[in-house]
Design a protein around this nucleic acid. Structure first.
Ligand code: NAD
Ligand code: NAD
Lengths: 218, 218
DNA sequence: CGCCATTTGTGATAAAATGATCAAAAAATA
DNA sequence: TATTTTTTGATCATTTTATCACAAATGGCG
């Protein structure tokens, strides 16, 4: 170890990063409502967080507020978009053209928040060639070429759990760096690949712990 | 304060509860694969967690393992289901019969994990009366009666963000205790109501923080 | 049967996250 | 202009969470 080595830039906790998109979502809502200035207190009330938490989180990235006044909504919005790198549109590919895949591919809410589904893949010959809006379903064999063409780093997995691990391998092989997995299974991936999960049942089962038992049967 | 009062039962951290459904999902997978015994080490590797974390989490609820051997998969599965109260099927209602609502209402993966969508509601007269599988879409006015009839405590919100807060009010009014919200908005609810959120964009924006910027435009 | 290799459950410890406090700055008000 | 009210960003204190490390079981094996 060299005591003269450059100071390590402070690693920002992942839990802080995970709150930024929520802040951005709320600040953008305020902006749409015509609100020009807000405060950590107001944001905290809207989000159910303490004002200190919000100030501390933001302070990792700079000074965005003004004492006595608070935060300029448009400016904070811009800064959060820069920090999260969503001041642009990212290409996303989707594997699995089932019920969920259709809903996601038809969803119009991605674009203005920084994402666009540029291609959909399926391994069922009956699905391949079909259209979802303006997108034509392609065979999974086309994944590597499409990823290269769009320099795509993000993929959604919306195939059955039994196929998800294999699809993950194919995606990583093709150069995908981050995966949003809707299949109810934990994927095994190399450490440099980021996977996030969406499984509504996980949320339901979290809820039932706190509910009074009241079931239909079994 | 009475020094003779009953000992306060140790409050289990919510973060521990939030991991239990993941454990259950994985243990059930092992069970399906015919695995009879597992260990905190094996589970940790499958989930990307430390074995100590898993042991400590489980220890909040009792002793489920055997030293030198590990955990009996079927038994652990059963115990986790009991702890989470999913050793039965919970009725769930769904508001919003759009693309996402259709995907959710058609999804067959809820039942065997403890949940059944018993009714779907929409406020669009063109949707009301339509069928999704065996479920007929009902008008939102019918929510209170259906909630009472099924003693339903859980609801899914799958309406546009602009309608979500109002729908949440209606649901709470009707007696719903926990809400899974797919609309990209933070709901304001009384403290005794639990809300969980699913918003894929939040996950994407979390990912992009760690990616090298590579966008389409803007 | 005794020994070895495992693996649990847990108290102690370390690390991380949150919350409280406050000086400084800015705007509003008198 | 002086005073009061707000609100930030930083520091410090507290609480929460995760990790470590090991005694106590357990089963397999020679
Ligand atoms: N539908 C929902 O609302 C919902 C809810 C929660 C979770 N999920 C999960 O999302 C995933 C998709 O659900 P769904 O309802 O759309 O299922 P689905 O069966 O309707 O669709 C799955 C699609 O994946 C395709 N597929 C299967 N194997 C593939 C492979 N190896 N490569 C490429 N494509 C493949 C199939 O051809 C099919 O089109 C599942 O894992 C499911 O558990 C869905
Ligand atoms: N489709 C997706 O894959 C997807 C992905 C992410 C998030 N979402 C979110 O999920 C929600 C639903 O998405 P969608 O694509 O199904 O939208 P959608 O427009 O297809 O469907 C919304 C449905 O809600 C109904 N609705 C509107 N106001 C209502 C009210 N007050 N009471 C009852 N019903 C009402 C509409 O009639 C419509 O049928 C939205 O908030 C969307 O942002 C959807």
């Amino acid at each position: 170890m060299n005591h003269l080595s450059a100071p390590v830039l402070p690693q920002i906790p992942d839990i802080v990063i995970s709150r930024l998109p929520i802040y951005l979502r709320t600040v953008r809502l305020l902006k749409e409502q015509g609100v020009e200035v807000t405060s950590s207190q107001e944001l905290g009330e809207l989000l159910g967080l303490s004002s200190a938490q919000i100030r501390k989180d933001l302070s990792h990235f700079g000074e965005f507020g003004k004492q006595g006044t608070g935060y300029n909504v448009a400016y904070l919005c811009n800064q959060l978009e820069k920090i999260l790198k969503v001041d642009c549109v990212w290409p996303v590919i989707l594997v699995g053209a089932g019920y969920l895949g259709h809903a996601l591919a038809s969803y119009t809410g991605f674009e203005h928040r920084g994402f666009r589904i540029v291609a959909v893949f399926d391994n069922d010959p009956k699905k391949v060639g079909g259209a979802i809006g303006s997108i034509t379903v392609q065979p999974v064999e086309a994944i590597p070429a499409v990823v290269r063409q769009h320099r795509c780093q993000i993929a959604i997995i919306a195939v059955p759990a039994s196929a998800a691990q294999q699809v993950a391998h194919q995606l990583i092989e093709a150069g995908i760096k981050s995966i949003l997995c809707y299949a109810p299974i934990t994927l095994t991936v190399p450490p440099y690949i980021r996977v996030e999960y969406i499984d509504p049942v996980i949320h339901f089962q979290h809820m039932t712990f706190y509910l009074e038992k009241g079931c239909i049967e079994e």
